[in-house]
Design a protein around this nucleic acid. Structure first.
Lengths: 237, 237
DNA sequence: CGGCTTCTTGAAGATATTCAAACCCAGTGG
DNA sequence: CCACTGGGTTTGAATATCTTCAAGAAGCCG
């Protein structure tokens, strides 16, 4: 779990105009002319599962747009305890806090192979000054982060383990019900429980026919059962 | 706990230029000329302890700057369970989410008598367009909210009850160590535990000489003891 | 003084953690 | 080929922690 350093496989300067996921990302609203204002390279970075994009409390002058994959933001406590505070999917932005401060607030670590764009703060600052079209998207990112933070608190930190895990799976599952489960350690770090208890709870969901093991750690969810477990079990189970 | 409706004691249009707490608030950086851009009334609102400023899921076109007092933001779950997700102190902004969406995300309820300024979104939108000086402060508010959200998750939702309560008290205490404790129910809603357990945990902190009852629900904290309790008790107690 | 709400405490039972051992599986090297 | 190793997983048993239900105590207010 603590294997890798940053080792960024740099793939060259990105062309934002023709970005495949641009509709999703921070630059969604920018117009042709706005791109002329970008005078610094925006790197396209690939990192493997388990690798670290940046570490908390380290200075930084760039933020990152997630193009593909899944990133965990991990808060490391004074006592070394780890807690995952957010998950970043494609379209999300990592490291917004450097626009206000000077250091990153969390460790950002890939859960799956990830591609991100590295955007220097100066580019954001310049665009903010010159065009109002970035402003809305920036606020949207802050808002999304805050919404997810609230969700982690209310959905994933409250109630029984079974309920919490059920809700996590509903968040992680594809619309068709398939999921790749994180390690039990990561599940524990998201749900505020030990990895052993996370493991037991996975077993319990299997027993309840809420999830089925398809292969390795690929599962298929019974979304109805999961939903009923996630909603108010005061009497049941 | 569910006594009051909004009943706003309106005290008239605020004069932001001469605001006593302006250095703290959203308009901190505005200059004389910027105030000319404000063409809608900014109301100065007083509400009593226990009263509601706004409710979640209701439409709104205003946000609020807290001038004095203490406000809790409460998330009400589908099952009626309540969880306090943030506390707003003087200088903080409530209801930022209406800048991005159309409804408030939480119930905002005064824990102590509160004075706030009600600022129409249109004012913010106009100022955002005309002056860059609001932009930084807006980002700062989003950032502060997010930082506190992370803190609630990592400090107040993880670990033993004793530790969590200790950390809450450190947050609530004045520099001299005095605190007015919230109701046990509110403590429970912040710490993710039942009010009974919150009560027991308060008793335990008294037994540990971490806090002393001074009067009613005024306490005095022994900050050193609290700090040691809050930091990594794996062996102790 | 009631009558109310909030707080406290007890005891039983539910839920989660800890420590330990065993298991699975993929990769390694004899 | 197969034993060996290492990381992640599962399970068991004992213990710690928290919740629930219930009752009593302490404040506060008309």
């Amino acid at each position: 779990m603590k294997r890798s350093q940053i080792e960024t496989a740099w793939t060259g300067r990105a062309d934002c105009r023709s970005c495949g996921v641009r509709a999703l990302v921070l630059f969604a609203d920018l117009q042709e002319a706005d791109f002329e204002l970008i005078h610094q390279p925006i790197e396209d970075i690939h990192i493997g599962a388990g690798q670290t994009l940046y570490r908390g409390d380290t200075p930084g002058r760039s933020l990152f747009t997630v193009r593909s994959g899944l990133i965990k933001l991990v808060h490391v406590g004074a006592d070394g305890s780890q807690r995952i505070v957010r998950l970043l999917r494609p379209g999300a932005t990592a490291g917004l806090e450097v626009l206000v401060g000077t250091t990153y607030a969390h460790d950002a670590i890939a859960l799956q192979p990830v591609t991100v764009c590295r955007i220097p703060c100066d580019v954001i600052d310049k665009l903010s000054r010159e065009t109002p079209r970035l402003h809305t998207q920036l606020m949207q990112r802050w808002h999304d982060s805050l919404r997810q933070a609230d969700e982690f608190l209310t959905e994933l930190s409250t109630g029984r383990a079974t309920k919490r895990l059920g809700r996590l799976l509903l968040q992680l599952a594809e619309p068709d019900g398939s999921v790749i489960l994180p390690t039990r350690e990561d599940m524990g770090a998201m749900l505020g429980m030990t990895l052993e208890h996370a493991s037991r709870t996975v077993s319990e969901l299997k027993r309840l026919d809420a999830i089925f093991e398809v292969a390795g750690n690929r599962y298929r969810c019974n979304l109805e059962v999961l939903a009923s477990i996630s909603a108010t079990p005061r009497s049941e189970l």
